[in-house]
């Protein structure tokens, strides 16, 4: 199957110091990253803060300018410098979902206005009551949400509404940046169910999280990022069962699990204990 979205040799650096003079050196946030995802598949990206996983998503959707490398959507290179009209298919087809759902919903607007505006921007604009209801139905909500504002919803409901907004354009790819990290586990499971359904509809996901358990359940492929590089990539289950890189193994060992009680603390103590050489000095 051909990839719906791919990045090839992507490099990006954030300038540090000398922002105004432009003489600053760049800290490498993405270092030769090449990844791809097929329709109906989930590419999971795991890594710690600063590993470049959010930067990757932001660069793909065009929020970071000045990258090098190629972003391909349905085989064609995306030109983020091109006029919006020329990028319309990409903009509608690749939608982003953030950790904080409030960030993608205008607090002053009713859900009806937010979703109508999103529908109006879709490739085949249609924003009747029927379409709005269908959209809410897709995320497990109903028309009673339409005339309320974001402040009237709980975190889990807001994330559903943010997903509904993203679905308005009928995207083929959803880029999710820690979409369940701010939610309670019972609500997280509801949202993962919803993603599972969208996946079966044939939508592709790039799913960024620091929670390997979540990726173990939703991802087909996992890429591990560390300091801007992809250090390991492989089928989700294989990568979790037999990690090839020490860094991946360390992330797995540090995940709190419901087995081997006390192993988490033991492992942390071993890692923190001074090496024999340090202890002797």
């Amino acid at each position: 199957m051909t990839a719906v979205l791919a990045v090839e040799h992507l490099n990006f650096g954030y300038p540090i110091g000398g922002l105004i003079s432009g003489t600053g050196v760049a800290v490498k946030a993405l270092d030769d990253v090449s990844l791809s995802v097929e329709p109906g598949r989930v590419l999971g990206i795991v890594g710690e803060s600063g590993s470049g996983k959010s930067t990757l998503l932001r660069t793909i959707v065009g929020l970071n300018r000045g990258y090098t490398g190629t972003i391909r959507y349905r085989g064609e290179a995306v030109d983020h410098a091109a006029r919006p009209a020329r990028r319309a298919a990409f903009v509608a087809g690749v939608q982003m979902i953030f950790q904080d759902p409030g960030g993608s919903l205008n607090p002053f607007k009713t859900i009806r206005r937010t979703l109508s505006a999103a529908l109006a921007r879709s490739p085949s604009p249609r924003a009747g009551a029927e379409e709005l209801e269908a959209l809410l139905h897709q995320v497990g909500m109903n028309a009673s949400a339409l005339d309320r504002r974001p402040s009237e919803f709980s975190g889990g409901q807001l994330q559903r509404l943010a997903i509904a907004r993203a679905l308005a354009c009928d995207p083929s790819v959803l880029l999710c940046d820690e979409p369940t990290s701010a939610l309670d586990v019972s609500i997280q499971a509801q949202i993962l169910d919803l993603f599972g359904r969208l996946k079966r509809e044939g939508r592709a996901f790039i799913f960024v999280t620091h929670n390997l358990g979540v990726l173990g359940h939703i991802a087909d492929t996992i890429a591990v990022m560390h300091r801007g590089r992809v250090v390991e990539v492989g089928p989700a289950r294989e990568l979790i069962a037999t990690p090839q890189q020490a860094y991946t193994a360390a992330l797995i060992a540090a995940s709190p699990r419901l087995k081997h009680r006390g192993a988490l603390l033991e492992h942390a103590r071993r890692r923190l204990a001074p090496t024999p050489a340090e202890a002797a000095s």
């Binding site: 499971a189 509801q190 358990g213 359940h217």
Partner: peptide, 23 residues
Amino acid sequence: RGLIASIPDLDDLDRPVVAIPGQ
């Protein structure tokens, strides 16, 4: 029971993650 069933368990990837319905 519901809270524990809703955890994506790294040691048991075949166990479905079961949400607690509602709010």
